[in-house]
Design a protein around this nucleic acid. Structure first.
Lengths: 344, 344
DNA sequence: CACGTCCTGGAAAACTCTTTCCCAGAGTAG
DNA sequence: CTACTCTGGGAAAGAGTTTTCCAGGACGTG
């Protein structure tokens, strides 16, 4: 009790039973142990303050209680919301969550995945769209396969196409619904902050939006689509660029909320009013950003729930065969950042 | 390579050396190994795709590469910003970060701490003010002592008084400086959303603010101090309560930014304009909330840096003797949510 | 040349569990 | 009463590393 560790052997000795029996009592194996011995062992464990050595257990069982969570940037509220859901789910099951931040670097992702493999992690949950770059995708797939071969489970949020169970927002339909809503308000000319060209999520939202416009017989001018980083600052910068070049759009769609936030800041700095001079819409409905003024029209995704469901996919019993895909719909939330275009 | 694991023994055999030598090569122990053998071992490891079994290493070394991070709620941007700093620091050192969410429950905190202990985690970083409740504090201190006895390091963010190295914002001075700034604007009557009564951070900010007012010869009416949850919704609700009872204050100070956000939302819902009808100030300068309009006057804390410094305290070499305390100053950031009071 | 020292490599113990295998005793059927 | 099946307990064999200890060779010194 002083400074060293209490081992199961000490507990067994103190209880006057064998190591095997003590182990059976403490972890409740398939084997029966008489009530009398069980009480003695438990009492000894309690008295000595026994705490199992997790690495010894992992080694013996060849399976640990670790679950990995890989995100691009934990300080981004999109990821931290999902992370909250995953954490909850893991903790309910008595598992320990390992957090890896990849900063969108495939290399870091590989490192973390290897570390999880080396710890015999039970499962890993990959959050956030990867690039559409073939080569790094192939490497990622290789890592995932290796992880599963060693008995780990894998689930993804927001990146269908990987060989794993997936929870994915319906980016295409959500963006299309948003486009229809905005067209319904009377907008005809749109500008889009489309994020990085090689990011799947960004691309799907762009395509969905674009598709709905086409279906409504509207064009999307090429110069009204600007690409940039998927971040608040990316949105700010893209908006400045857009406005510097000049645009005839009456409504600006940023493919995620943090970019939309940057856009609103840029417009404010340029002396433009939202929605009077330009309507703005985003995507995700980040909880922390719900208090922006004007309130941001966006597509709501149940982020925390998505994290939870992904974790459940990865942790609940095995599902044989192909990979399950859960598609969660987005819901258009109209707020004050969009309004009918003013005649001009 | 197919599905099983490659063990060090296989690598050794493949390289034609002993297990001991292989181990020495791979982890670079103090012992020398000739260049010839070293090359052979490395080549074999590479060829077989060797990946060390982390739990076996932990068991043998009795020390793992895990670092714990305990926060109340990872989806709160205050915590996720700090977490980003901690993650960075841990990853730089090749360590694996374990994230525990406690939801302000001392019991959960204990569970996570025990799990970390059982994994022989190298260090743990506790973020966020604990309650001032004596009993749960005592239990926490007990857990911390146990953790250190087993060779773990502990660092805290924002909770001096625990037996560990600490990075702590200067809540008192920051709040005082803010108060002086607001008095300088001309405010004389203040209302305070003071958060929970038993939360150390909340209390220090309240005290600092109050102290500066007293020093300026101003009173703080009792009915102008309302307590509530330390969250956005707590701020909203507290503000509604305050306004329902009526207040003569010209400026509202919420002891953190998320509460201030809730306050602004409540005021908006009540049809009051900020800062025209009431000035609002917060504390923390959460990055995600910088885009609120009107911009929130607040006290800036370098959250990510605080996380990094705490991690560094916990991870860099041992410091004998007492516990180090790093106090980081806050800086008043004046934005549009505060203005001189209008004559009324 | 003898002796002590340093260096490198290997054998084996240690780390703490889980689980298999074996055994003794109790109960049951023939 | 024998033979057979359960049942609960213990001994011991792993699991994959690290590290200690020992042996043998090279080298330097007197």
């Amino acid at each position: 009790m002083d400074s060293g560790y209490v081992t199961l052997e000490q507990v067994a000795e103190h209880a006057g039973v064998s190591l095997a029996t003590a182990s059976r009592v403490i972890n409740g194996s398939t084997r029966q142990v008489s009530q009398r011995l069980r009480d003695k062992v438990n009492a000894s464990a309690e008295e000595l303050g026994y705490l199992a050595n997790a690495s010894a257990q992992t080694l013996a069982r060849n399976s640990s209680s670790l679950v990995g969570l890989l995100v691009h940037d934990i300080s981004d509220p999109y990821f931290s919301s999902i992370a909250a859901g995953v954490t909850r789910c893991a903790e309910e099951r008595g598992l320990v969550l390992v957090l890896g931040s990849t900063n969108r670097s495939a290399q870091k992702e590989g490192r973390v995945l290897a570390a999880l493999r080396s710890h015999r992690a039970k499962a890993v949950i990959l959050v956030g769209s990867r690039s559409t770059d073939e080569e790094s995708n192939a490497r990622l797939i290789g890592e995932i396969e290796a992880f599963r071969r060693q008995g780990g489970r894998v689930a993804c949020v927001s990146q269908p196409g990987l060989p794993a169970d997936t929870v994915s927002p319906d980016n295409h339909s959500g963006a299309a619904a948003l486009a229809r809503h905005l067209v319904g308000l009377g907008h005809r000319r749109f500008a889009i902050l489309a994020g990085p060209t090689d990011l799947r999520t960004a691309r799907e939202r762009l395509d969905g939006f674009h598709g709905a416009l086409s279906a409504a017989g509207l064009e999307l001018a090429h110069h009204n689509v600007v690409h940039g980083a998927f971040t608040r600052d990316g949105g700010y910068e893209s908006t400045r660029r857009l406005m510097t070049l000049g645009t005839d759009a009456t409504c600006l769609f940023a493919v995620n909320d943090v970019m939309a936030t940057g856009a609103m800041a840029a417009l404010r700095d340029l002396g433009m009013r939202v929605p009077d001079d330009l309507s703005v819409a985003g995507f995700d409905d980040i909880p922390t950003l719900r208090d922006l003024t004007p309130g941001l029209t966006t597509v709501r995704l149940p982020l925390e729930e998505m994290g939870e469901r992904a974790a459940a996919l990865a942790l609940d019993e095995d599902h044989q065969g192909g990979h399950r895909v859960i598609t969660v719909p987005g819901e258009v939330v109209a707020r004050e950042s969009t309004a009918p275009p003013t005649a001009s």
